[in-house]
Design a protein around this nucleic acid. Sequence first.
DNA 1: CAATCGCTTTGAACGGCGTTCAAAGACCGT
DNA 2: ACGGTCTTTGAACGCCGTTCAAAGCGATTG
Lengths: 181, 181
Amino acid sequence: MAAITEHGLAELTMAGLARRLGTSGGHILYYFGSKDQVLVETLRWSEERLAPRRAELVAGSAPAGERLAGYVDLYLPTGAADPRWLLWVDVWSRTIAVPELREAQAELDRGWHEDLVRLVDDGVRAGEFAPTDAEAFSVRLRAMLDGFSTQIVIGVPGVDRDVLADHAKDHARRTLAPALL
Amino acid sequence: MAAITEHGLAELTMAGLARRLGTSGGHILYYFGSKDQVLVETLRWSEERLAPRRAELVAGSAPAGERLAGYVDLYLPTGAADPRWLLWVDVWSRTIAVPELREAQAELDRGWHEDLVRLVDDGVRAGEFAPTDAEAFSVRLRAMLDGFSTQIVIGVPGVDRDVLADHAKDHARRTLAPALL
DNA sequence: CAATCGCTTTGAACGGCGTTCAAAGACCGT
DNA sequence: ACGGTCTTTGAACGCCGTTCAAAGCGATTG
């Protein structure tokens, strides 16, 4: 992750990474099998580091609306070169050619999905949100967040992370708003 | 596009493409400059082929709701290996390393955005949709569609193109529904 | 203590990639 | 028939991810 942050994913080669780690390219592949596996394991590691904060958002005692806003902020890339999202986009394009990546990737997604469903159900149960199909809500919101994240991380001119975050939060607020009476 | 359809983007090499075209790799690069440019020009060509149908959706006389559903169907990939969307995902990951692609890509996006804004404004003007910030609606819906498209084209297990299309259409319908009184 | 044996680690070699470029070919106005 | 410009080729280049034979290392054993 540090290597990606410093020089970008495109500059990350087996030989370069090995040099940085004081070992050889062959050695890395002895354990990981392929560069694809290195990348997907790095993504997994990166996602695991977010797990505690995500768990807190699901289990926390703050109003569900606030926790949902926190979920959006945690999901989106921090900025134009967020290494976690560089990995996501790269893994997407590699998944098309390398089916072994598909399951790992689907599994990471599932974690985000299940937590969001719990969070929304929690808010509904507390009467803070209108009765909602949490599954459908999660599928839609996360797709929107994926689209926003892509734009942010590839640096589409004129897009601003915080503006897009507000779009997502506003969408959530309106969709989950309890009926006025 | 035919080569991508038949063998996938990962198998598409300069030498292989040249052989298929009865020419040499150097010759393709004489005109295109780089493989990245070949891909982005191919994407542009592919998008241009959709332009007439998109224009018809904007200018058509059918109810705006129906035209919006048509927009969703045109936007999403046709299936798991839609070559247009293989190119999109590939261009996303290359854009990160090759800034020259960014403008081309943003420009293609702009076309979809502007047409969707017109379509929604049209529906609002006709009283078919509630008064809506069409800009914001377009930013959100297209992000959602990008997220869905990614999942479809990379073949996430368990996702179905038509189910996701219905999600998008339902989101649009609910968001744009005129108030009940 | 030496021999053995599995697990690590190396780095040279490999095939294939996108790209470059000197040379050859084709075309055309004069 | 010549000259000049634009095309086209294909060999060469540097770099990539990956493979694999050989060497290194440490623990187990007689």
